[in-house]
Design a protein around this nucleic acid. Structure first.
Lengths: 241, 241
DNA sequence: AAGTGGTCTAGACCACTGT
DNA sequence: CAGTGGTCTAGACCACTTT
């Protein structure tokens, strides 16, 4: 795969950005199709007579934009299109994925009973000794880890949840056990970078972009169902509203 | 301003990330307060005996996370806290800012009549020859450019908008002129990186993080008011829902 | 063993800011 | 002018994957 470049080394626009722009436009124009391997960093160095640090800066930009991915020992590839998801949809992730014919799997990373820290006391309105059920789950879509979900539930209100299995929908369990349905939610979302834990679990690099949603889910009667934190890989998702 | 570090050069955790983490935690713990100048890159090189490229990688991470900002010729500084905004609030940005006692200014960058491209024909449901009013405005909050808004309105429906001034609320003008109110909206949002245009106008660097919202705003009667694209500086905003 | 990306070094020159 | 961050170079070693 050879790419034509038209780089002006004396432009006020940085070289790394010219390279990034050239490749980005070829991907947008579908000249470079999803799955295609880009030339290796060292090939680009030789072809353009530009140092590897600069080439890497361009590629890092393309990765942050979601246009490329790379893997150690393999190479750099054009990404698939981003998945569209409704971040505020309370119907559950499972339905959403099934509708689109995507295979997925939910892996329970943690299923613990913990004591609340200040954040949880504030959000869930529980006291120092009120135990909290903490469920940390990884959503794997088409064999790729895509979302990390942390759910915190006041065990005092939902004691029957102890010893349940959380491989499937948490909301289904709440329906069956307590006849409670999610109705509305409130919270915040922002862009964060992957730390050690998130990068290991989501199989992405340190400082990869994440969109993180944190908030409370309520029933129709304004009863708190859970406090939830969800980490979406920003390179893989667009969000509809 | 001297910072204590405990860097392990033989750890499997990259050096740049250890530095980034150390500084991040000191900012989170309020040991380093907003506005404080960090040691210069070259000072950190000397203190830690680490090359400048590595130091810069750590600082770039802190900037992407929104913890720091830097200015050419000046130095690197601890950022203020992110502003919370309701991205879906249709009451208008002005009210939101006034309530919080923040000074702001709206600068009209462009106010043109254009012919629709494919995207606009699709979104606005107009034909090749139906002219579109294109308003590009910069929102400057507390003297700092923070948001870039592009509004596209079908001129056929709203011919009286020609030659209006758009320094203030677009929705106010629609109220006065056509007695139309924004009621609901739909669209997508995602994370993008600043290109040449956005970085120049928002006074940020190339590849700075942006949260971009694109969508249609409707009246109660499902009449299209505008197609809107808003670029938020991701380092400056959190979003409530 | 050869090739890939990931990290890091020690330097250089530039544009911009302040004095 | 000296000091700052922004970009770039030409190399090095590492961990990983493929052959």
């Amino acid at each position: 795969m050879k790419i034509d470049f038209d780089i002006n080394k004396n432009s006020h626009i940085p070289i790394f950005f010219q390279i990034q722009k050239t490749i980005r436009e070829k991907i947008q124009d579908n000249e470079l199709k999803p799955g295609t391997q880009l030339p290796t960093e060292r090939e680009l160095c030789k072809q353009l007579n530009i140092s590897r640090v600069t080439i890497r800066k361009a590629i890092r930009g393309l990765i942050a934009e979601g246009y490329c991915t790379n893997e150690n020992g393999k190479g750099t590839f054009v990404s698939k299109k981003k998945l569209k998801t409704n971040i505020f949809d309370l119907e559950g992730t499972s339905d959403f994925l099934t509708k689109r014919g995507l295979s997925f799997e939910t892996k329970v990373i943690k299923d613990d009973i913990i004591l609340p820290n200040d954040e949880l006391k504030d959000k869930l309105g529980v006291l120092d000794n009120d135990k909290v059920l903490y469920i940390k789950r990884l959503r794997i879509i088409e064999k790729e880890p895509m979302m990390l979900e942390k759910a915190y539930l006041p065990l005092k209100k939902y004691p029957k949840l102890k010893n349940k299995k959380f491989n499937n929908s948490l909301y289904d369990i709440l329906k069956e056990t307590y006849n409670l349905y999610p109705d509305h939610a409130e919270g915040i979302f922002e862009i964060l970078l992957a730390g050690e834990d998130e990068s290991r679990l989501l199989n992405i690099k340190l400082n990869s972009l994440l969109l993180v949603k944190k908030g409370l889910v309520y029933t129709k009667e304004n009863k708190i169902l859970e406090y939830n934190k969800t980490y979406f890989r920003a390179d893989k998702f667009k969000f509809v509203y």
